[in-house]
Design a protein around this nucleic acid. Structure first.
Length: 946
DNA sequence: GTGATTCCCTA
DNA sequence: GTAGGGAATCACC
C-alpha cells in the first residue's frame, strides 16, 4: 500500500457492536443501564483514530429491516437470535457517541453494512485512496486488493501503513505465513490466514457456507477442505466442473450441493455497486466523509451520563492522575487514552549502571505516587530465585532497569547487588511507599530471599484482572494485548523456551532492560485502566481490596513458612510400595501369560480386550476401550486380572505422585516443603496449589492416608486441622432459604440424615445407612448442578430412579429448586453469577453456547456461587485468624489451606488458645442464616489431626 | 523434547 | 454433574 495516498478508514460498526457487547463485562452506568457495548465501542473508535492516520472515515451500521438477500433467500439470517435487549438499548447511545468522537456514520435501509463498505472501498480505491477496513468479519476478506487492507482492531492493532511484521513471539502459522493473531490482512495476509487469495474468498465462503447467516455450503466442508479444493481446482467453478472426480463423503456432499452453490455464491458476495446517493452527500464524492474534530462538550456530557469516569477525567483536561509527567501527546486529544497508551507514549527507559544514577532513581521512586516494580531472577522457584535485575516504572513510558548479575563477555560492569539492595531497602520496606506489580507474591519471595521485606504493596494487576474477569488469562502479555493493544516482548522471545532456554543472567543487558522496563511500564498502564473499573463496582472493590490483596501477602507468608515433612517415613513407604508393585506386576504377568507395561492404558487394553477377550464396558473420548477404575471394578467381579491392575494403579499412583515426589520437594535450606498457591487460576475464587500440590494429598483410603502421617510438627509442636463442616451446603441453605435445610442446620442435625429423613419420609432415628448414603450423594450432586444421568451414575441406579429421587428431593426442598431455577435464569440474563461477597463469575456460554456447552454453563451457574462463596469465606477466615495470631503475638503458623480446611503448626503452649479461638474466628467471618461450624483436630501429624 | 491422551488424587 | 494438579505413555517433531 502506498504511504502517500490519502487513507479512507471504513469501520464495520455492526460487527464490532456484537463483539463489544460480548467482549465487555456487563458494565452498568449510573442508572443501571447497560454500558458495556458502549464502552467497548468508544474504546475501539478512540484507538482506531489513534492508530490509523486517516483523513476520511466512516462507521457503517446495518439498518433494520430486510435486504435484497432476504428476497433471494427467505431463510437468510433466519437462525440468528434477535438482538439482546441489553445490546439493543445501547445502539442509539453508540450512534451518538461515535458521532461525538468525530466519525461520520452511515446506515442505509435495505443495504447491509458489508455491502456499503464494499461499495465505498471500491469507489475510494478507484478515486486514489488507500482503504483500510476495520472489521471482525472474515467475509470482508474478499474486498482485499493492493489498495484495500483489513484490520481487526479488537485483537491486535498496528498502523496499516507501516510494514507488517508479525509481532515478536507470535508463532508462525503452519503454512509459514504470519501468525493468525496478527490481524492485518493485506493480500499475503489473506492467503496466509485462509489459504486462498482475496479473489477466491467468495468461492471459499460458498463452499463452507456461513452458519451465522444461515447460508448452507457443502456439508462437512470446513476451511481446510474448501481451501484444499480451491488450490487444487483453481476456483469454485473449477471445483464444480470436477465434482464427479472428487472422492469420499465430501465429494458426495459436494454433488448434493451443486444446485445450491450458485445461490450460496450470490449470498456471500459483497455488493460493490450499491447506490448510496441520498446517504453520502454528493455521492460518489467522498469529501463528506472527512473525519471531524471531536465534540468535547458533547463528549463531556455523554461520559457524565454514562459514568465513564476515566474518559471524563481525560477530556476535562485532567492528566492520568498518577504521574507528574503526563504522557507525551502526539498532537492528538486522545493520545493518552487508556486503550492507546503504550503504543503512543514515548518511552524513556534507562539502564542504571552507576551509583549517582541509582540515587537519582531512588529519589524519583520516592516522589512518585505509585511505582510499578518487577524483579528478574534466575529461577522460577520463588523460594530459590535470586535477583538478576530489577525495574521500576514511575509514570507511563518512564522506567528504569538496574542490572545486577548479568554475565557474559558483553555484559557491562554493574552495580554491586548488595549495595543496590541496601540503597533500595528503605523504600522497599516502607509501608507508606505505594507500590504495584504483576503477581507481587513472587517478587515478595524473591526480595525475602535477599532479606528484604516488601511492604507498601497497594495493587497487583494479576489480581485486578482476576477480580474483573477470572475466566480470562492474566499474564502480563495478555493484559497488555487486551488493554493496551500490545503484548510487549515475551519472556520466551528473550530467553527461548524448553531445552534452549537461557538463564536471564545471560540475556544481553540492553534487551533485558527493554524487557523489564516494558513489563513495569505495562503493569502501571494496565493498572490505570483496570483500577478505575474495580473502583466503580463496590462488590468487586471489596473482593479486590478486602480479600484478594491481603490474601496475597498472607499466602506469601504461608508459602514461606512451608510445612515440615518426614522424608524418611515417605522413603520407607516408597520402598514398601515398590516391593508390592513388583509382586503385583509378576502376578499380572502370570495371569496375562506375558509381560506388559502396567502403566500403559493402551497395553492394558490390548491384553484385556484383545488377548483375553474381556468385554468392553465403555470407550474413551478417542474411541479406545476404557480401562478406568469404574471399568476395572466391573470386570474384576468376573475376572482376576482387573483386580490386580486396580491395586497396581492405586499403589503406583501413591508412589510416583506422593511418596517418591514429596521428599524431592524438600527445600535444602529450610528442610520444609513450600507449595505455591495460585491465586488467580480457579474461576470460582478458590486457590490452587502446585509444586507440590498440597491440596490433593490422599485421604480416601487407609493406604493413601499414610502419606499424611509424613506431614509432621517439629518438636514441641502439634498439627491442628480446622475445617468448615458442610460449608457449601450451608451456603446453599443460606442462599435458597429453604426452610427444611435452614432447620436442619439450625438445629445442628446431621444434614445428610435429615435429607434422607425428608426424602424417604422416615423418622430421623430410623434412617438407614443406605438411605443416608443416597441422601449424601444427592446433596453433593446438587452442589454440582447435577442431572438425573449423573446421579444415576454415581449411585449405580437407573436414570429413571434417579429422576424420581431428584423430583422427590425438590418436592421436599422446594426452596432449593427455586434457587436452582432462579440462579440459572439470572445467569442467563446477566451472563454471570455472583458470590455472597460480590465476586463475579462470568459464564459466556450460558447465552452463546450450543446445547451441551450451555447445559455445562448452567451447572456452573449453580455451583459457582456456592464454591465461590466458600472460597471467599475461607480467605476471610485465614485473614481473620492470622490477624488475631499477630495481634496476640502467637507463634502458631498457618501451614496449609485445602479449600475448606486450614492446617496449623502450633506450639504446645498455644494449643488451648488455638482450639478455642480458631473455630470461633472461622465461624464468625460471616453471619449467615445458618451457623457456620468449624471442627478442630489435633495430632502429631496431619493424619492424626483429623 | 513437546503435546495430547488417559488416568487418578483432592475439596 | 463443580473446581483444580499431575504422572505416565506415546506419537510426533
Amino acid at each position: 500500500m502506498s504511504d502517500t495516498k490519502p487513507i479512507l478508514l471504513l469501520v464495520d460498526g455492526s460487527s464490532y457492536l456484537y463483539r463489544a457487547y460480548h467482549a465487555m463485562p456487563d458494565l452498568r452506568g449510573p442508572e443501571g443501564v447497560a454500558t458495556g457495548a458502549i464502552h467497548g465501542m468508544v474504546a475501539m473508535m478512540k484507538r482506531l483514530r489513534d492508530q490509523v492516520a486517516a483523513e476520511h472515515a466512516v462507521c457503517v451500521f446495518d439498518a433494520k429491516g430486510p435486504t435484497f438477500r432476504d428476497e433471494w433467500y427467505p431463510e437468510y439470517k433466519a437462525q440468528r437470535a434477535p438482538m439482546p435487549d441489553a445490546l439493543r438499548e445501547q445502539i442509539a447511545p453508540i450512534h451518538e457517541v461515535v458521532q461525538l468522537l468525530g466519525w461520520p456514520i452511515l446506515e442505509v435501509p435495505g443495504i447491509e453494512a458489508d455491502d456499503a463498505i464494499g461499495t465505498l472501498a471500491r469507489v475510494a480505491a478507484e478515486a486514489g485512496h488507500a482503504v483500510v477496513v476495520s472489521t471482525g468479519d472474515k467475509d470482508l476478506a474478499q474486498l482485499v486488493t493492493p489498495d484495500v487492507t483489513l484490520i481487526n482492531t479488537m485483537n491486535k492493532a498496528a498502523p496499516p501503513a507501516a510494514a507488517q511484521q508479525p509481532p515478536e513471539g507470535a508463532r508462525s502459522a503452519p503454512w509459514g505465513g504470519p501468525a493468525v493473531d496478527c490481524e492485518t490482512l493485506d493480500i499475503p495476509g489473506v492467503i496466509a490466514k485462509f489459504g486462498v487469495p482475496p479473489d477466491r474468498i467468495i468461492d471459499y465462503l460458498t463452499l463452507m457456507g456461513d452458519t451465522v447467516d444461515n447460508v448452507p455450503g457443502v456439508e462437512k466442508v470446513g476451511p481446510k477442505t474448501a481451501a484444499k479444493w480451491i488450490a487444487e481446482y483453481g476456483s469454485l467453478d473449477g471445483v464444480i466442473a470436477s465434482a464427479d472426480k472428487i472422492k469420499g463423503v465430501a465429494g458426495e456432499n459436494l454433488r448434493k450441493a451443486l444446485d445450491w452453490l450458485p445461490m450460496g455464491r450470490k449470498l456471500v458476495t459483497v455488493k460493490l455497486d450499491c447506490d448510496l446517493s441520498g446517504h453520502v452527500p454528493n455521492w460518489p464524492a467522498l469529501e463528506a466523509l472527512a473525519l471531524r474534530e471531536v465534540d468535547r462538550a458533547g463528549l463531556q456530557d455523554f461520559y457524565t451520563r454514562y459514568g465513564f469516569k476515566t474518559w471524563l477525567k481525560e477530556i476535562s483536561g485532567g492528566a492520568s492522575g498518577t504521574s507528574k509527567a503526563a504522557a507525551p501527546v502526539s498532537g492528538d486529544l486522545f493520545a493518552d487514552a487508556p486503550a492507546a497508551a503504550l503504543a503512543d507514549v514515548e518511552r524513556r527507559y534507562e539502564t542504571v549502571l552507576d551509583m549517582a544514577q541509582l540515587q537519582d532513581w531512588i529519589a524519583r521512586i520516592g516522589r512518585a505516587p505509585l511505582v510499578a516494580l518487577d524483579t528478574e531472577t534466575d529461577s522460577l522457584d520463588p523460594m530459590q530465585a535470586r535477583i538478576v535485575g530489577i525495574s521500576f516504572a514511575v509514570a507511563p513510558g518512564e522506567a528504569a532497569y538496574v542490572p545486577l548479575r548479568h554475565e557474559g563477555p558483553d555484559a557491562p560492569v554493574q552495580l554491586d547487588l548488595a549495595d543496590v539492595l541496601a540503597a533500595l531497602q528503605p523504600w522497599l520496606e516502607d509501608a507508606n511507599a505505594p507500590k504495584l506489580g504483576q503477581n507481587l507474591k513472587y517478587d515478595t519471595h524473591v526480595l525475602a530471599n535477599h532479606g528484604i521485606a516488601l511492604r507498601g504493596v497497594q495493587h497487583d494487576t494479576l489480581l485486578q484482572s482476576y477480580v474483573l474477569e477470572a475466566h480470562k488469562t492474566h499474564g502480563l502479555g495478555a493484559l497488555g494485548e487486551r488493554y493496551l493493544g500490545r503484548a510487549g516482548v515475551s519472556y520466551e522471545d528473550l530467553c527461548g523456551k524448553g531445552a534452549h532456554q537461557i538463564p536471564f543472567a545471560q540475556v544481553d543487558v540492553a534487551k533485558a532492560a527493554e524487557y523489564s522496563c516494558e513489563d513495569s511500564d505495562m503493569c502501571l498502564q494496565v493498572h490505570q485502566i483496570l483500577w478505575p473499573r474495580i473502583e466503580a463496582e463496590p462488590g468487586l472493590l471489596r473482593i479486590y481490596r478486602d480479600i484478594e490483596m491481603p490474601s496475597s501477602a498472607l499466602l506469601a507468608r504461608i508459602e514461606r513458612t512451608g510445612v515440615l515433612i518426614d522424608p524418611e517415613l515417605l522413603q520407607a513407604q516408597s520402598h514398601e510400595l515398590g516391593q508390592r508393585l513388583l509382586a503385583l506386576e509378576q502376578e499380572a504377568y502370570d495371569i496375562a501369560g506375558q509381560p506388559f507395561n502396567l502403566g500403559s492404558p493402551k497395553q492394558i487394553g490390548e491384553i484385556l480386550f484383545t488377548k483375553l477377550g474381556l468385554p468392553v464396558i465403555k470407550k474413551t473420548a478417542t474411541g479406545a476401550p476404557s480401562t478406568d477404575e469404574e471399568v476395572l471394578e466391573k470386570l474384576s467381579l468376573d475376572y482376576p486380572l482387573p483386580a490386580k491392575l486396580l491395586e497396581y494403579r492405586g499403589l503406583a499412583k501413591l508412589k510416583s505422585t506422593y511418596t517418591d515426589k514429596l521428599p524431592l520437594m524438600v527445600n535444602a535450606r529450610t528442610h520444609r516443603v513450600h507449595t505455591n498457591y495460585a491465586q488467580a487460576v480457579a474461576v470460582t475464587g478458590r486457590l490452587s496449589s502446585n509444586d507440590p500440590n498440597l491440596q490433593n494429598i490422599p485421604i480416601r483410603t487407609a493406604e493413601g492416608r499414610r502419606v499424611r502421617e509424613a506431614f509432621v510438627a517439629p518438636p514441641g509442636h502439634v498439627i491442628v486441622s480446622a475445617d468448615y463442616s458442610q460449608i457449601e451446603l450451608r451456603i446453599m441453605a443460606h442462599i435458597s432459604e429453604d426452610p427444611g435445610l435452614l432447620r436442619a442446620f439450625g438445629e445442628g442435625l446431621d444434614v445428610h440424615r435429615a435429607t434422607a429423613s425428608e426424602v424417604f419420609s422416615t423418622p430421623l432415628g430410623e434412617v438407614t445407612s443406605e438411605q443416608r448414603r443416597y441422601a449424601k450423594t444427592i446433596n453433593f450432586g446438587l452442589i454440582y448442578g447435577m442431572g438425573a444421568f449423573g446421579l444415576a451414575q454415581s449411585l449405580g441406579i437407573e436414570q429413571k430412579a434417579a429422576r424420581d429421587y431428584i423430583e422427590l428431593y425438590f418436592h421436599r426442598f422446594a426452596g432449593v429448586k427455586h434457587y436452582m431455577d432462579s440462579t440459572k435464569a439470572r445467569a442467563a440474563e446477566l451472563g454471570y453469577v455472583e458470590t455472597l461477597f460480590g465476586r463475579r463469575i462470568y459464564l459466556p456460554e450460558i447465552k452463546g453456547g450450543n446445547g451441551p456447552r450451555k447445559a455445562g454453563a448452567e451447572r456452573q451457574s449453580i455451583n459457582a456461587p456456592m464454591q465461590g462463596t466458600a472460597a471467599d469465606l475461607i480467605k476471610l477466615a485465614m485473614l481473620a485468624v492470622q490477624a488475631e495470631l499477630d495481634a496476640s503475638a502467637k507463634s502458631t503458623r498457618i501451614v496449609m489451606q485445602v479449600h475448606d480446611e486450614l492446617v496449623f503448626e502450633v506450639p504446645e503452649a498455644e494449643l488451648d488458645w488455638v482450639r478455642r479461638e480458631v473455630p470461633r474466628l472461622m465461624a464468625g467471618v460471616a453471619q449467615l442464616k445458618v451457623p457456620l461450624l468449624a471442627e478442630v483436630g489435633v495430632g502429631p501429624n496431619w493424619e492424626q489431626a483429623h
